[in-house]
Simulated assay, not measured.
Amino acid sequence: MTLFTEQLFADHLTLPYPEAAVVGDAYYAAPVPDLPLRLRIDFAPTIRSGRYDGLRMQVVHMERGRLDTAVLSFAEYGAFEVRDRRHGRAPSHDGYGSFTDWNHSEHAPWIGIDVTRLRLAIDQYVRLWIPGAPPVRTGPPPLTAPVPQARTSQTRTR
């Protein structure tokens, strides 16, 4: 079953890296195109086949290979907090803070994910390892209101 990886990165995480692509179930990016450092993000597997409990990030040097790996746990970053609370799942329950790809559905298995804190963590990680990377927008999009026209007062003289 597909994990809808491209949908997660394009529609939810919306990372600002100029050169990026989803290949299979992994996201690859060159946050700063002139540097030989690349970012790879995929789903972090658990000991159970088809269950994922976070995002695995890797910084890869084009000539030296993998430099670092970090895992962002969905539970630690509250990604499924609302869903798990709604289903009555606590940290000690099976399936808490994770998703499976066992159900063959037309919907992404991670539906309802909250990526706010994950985006912030990705931003911190990338900017630590890849200087000059553009910042990830972590808040709501800025409101764009039309600029009011300046009013001119006209004084009438008789």
Rank of each mutant, 00 (worst) to 15 (best):
A75D: 08
L67F: 03
T46H: 09
Q58R: 14
I47E: 15
A79I: 08
R56D: 04
V59G: 02
A44I: 09
M57W: 03
M62N: 15
S49W: 01
G78V: 03
R85L: 10
L55Q: 07
L67R: 14
L39P: 04
M62P: 02
H87M: 06
P31W: 07
L55A: 12
E81S: 11
D94M: 01
D94S: 04
G78D: 14
D68G: 01
I41S: 10
Y52K: 10
A44D: 06
H61I: 02
P45N: 10
R64P: 00
S49V: 09
V60T: 04
T69G: 07
G95W: 00
D84W: 00
A70G: 10
F74H: 05
G65H: 12
R83A: 08
L55C: 07
A79N: 06
L72F: 13
R56A: 05
R40N: 11
L37Q: 06
R56P: 05
L39S: 02
T69P: 03
G54F: 08
D68S: 13
A90P: 00
R56I: 06
L37F: 12
P45I: 13
A70S: 14
P91K: 11
R56E: 06
I41H: 05
H93Y: 10
F74G: 01
G54T: 07
L35W: 02
G95L: 00
F80A: 05
L35N: 02
G54D: 08
P36R: 09
D53A: 15
D94K: 00
A75Y: 03
L37N: 08
G54C: 15
P36W: 10
M62H: 13
G65K: 06
L72D: 03
R38M: 14
I47N: 15
P33H: 11
P33M: 09
S92V: 04
R86S: 09
